[in-house]
Design a protein around this nucleic acid. Structure first.
Lengths: 193, 193
DNA sequence: GTCTATAGACCGATAGAC
DNA sequence: GTCTATCGGTCTATAGAC
């Protein structure tokens, strides 16, 4: 990502990105200050600007780290042989994060929701790329299931997850996601294909 | 709502609440300043504090106005005789607001998502009451349809709408909500009951 | 009741010592 | 490369004239 390998020897850049991800998820983008992030990363405030020119640039780096994580997360389901098994494993894995969702919502969904209202154009354009990743993956699975409406089903699946994340977070009740997860698994089972 | 009728003769309080709703929806809670809201309401900045002690109090008033609107919105579907017709009319009415959702997301969902991360406790507790209203209404409709799992179906329906609002907003594409709306109408049609 | 002017606090970003 | 100290700007909230 960066050319100055010597600079990252101590891992400060990585710590800043990880700290940013945690703080941004817990507090939201606008409410998170560079002081909060620097403290979470255990890096002095002024040092942040050696690694990132602006706050937005740090946010963008956090998003890119999220994108890489999502891709690895989705790749982990390749061990299942059928698309149906992959989709159900995907739903189960999301449900496992229900306590995190109850506390702060879906890390990617809340980020997209906030960035959509951000005034910086560059940052607004990165958000769609984040949600695009699981949508494309799910579309591929439904297509392998033989569904002509694979795109609509993928959108519906991701929308259901994003929506139940919002409700789980708003009511601070992880059980909501548990029940919706079971419903989605049944829905996948009952899909002809 | 307030006892000082003389104070609201010029409608400034009402204008401030309406301005707050628009600005908060368009920009988000944290990014919206009292100066933005006052300008939208065409009220001098310093005058805001005559009507509201704090910014949070103005946000709370905006939420209460939203709650009243949701109740009126839901009541408008009583003209349909069957619960199935009421649910489908509800979905169609939401889809009609797709351009607004593409621009700024669902007014209630984005508010809940933001307030869940707010540091003020009072404000965090009002958000769930907002989403509770359509969930309770939908549960009642599914119950009248004879469904034992009315609560789960209501949660699933509202979650689908909130999720597709987030995707529609992130991709700035109202067509997503149009297609998902058709899918939800079919889903309601196919429900046994 | 209405509005201006500003206090007081905080944040992003920079300058510059080491 | 690292860190402190601080500037300039912005925001909420208040004081006080009218």
């Amino acid at each position: 990502m960066t050319d100055s390998v010597a600079a990252t020897r101590t891992g400060k850049r990585e710590r800043l990105v990880d700290g940013a991800r945690q703080v941004l998820h817990a507090q939201g983008v606008e409410a998170s200050t560079l002081a909060d992030i620097a403290a979470a990363a255990d890096v002095p405030l002024g040092n942040v600007y050696y690694y990132f020119k602006t706050k937005d640039e740090l946010v963008e780096a956090a998003i890119e780290a999220h994108a890489a994580d999502i891709r690895a997360f989705l790749a982990s389901f390749e061990r299942h042989r059928t698309p149906r098994a992959r989709l159900k494993a995907f739903v189960r894995a999301l449900v496992e994060q229900r306590d995190l969702a109850a506390r702060s919502g879906c890390p990617h969904g809340t980020l997209c929701s906030e960035l959509a209202k951000h005034d910086d154009d560059d940052l607004r354009d990165v958000a769609p790329q984040l949600i695009q990743i699981p949508v494309d993956w799910a579309e591929q699975q439904f297509r392998e299931l033989g569904r002509r409406d694979a795109r609509d089903l993928a959108i519906a699946l991701i929308a259901s997850y994003q929506g139940i994340s919002l409700l789980t977070n708003t009511f601070r009740n992880p059980t909501l996601m548990e029940r919706e997860g079971r419903r989605l698994e049944r829905w996948i089972d009952e899909l002809a294909g």
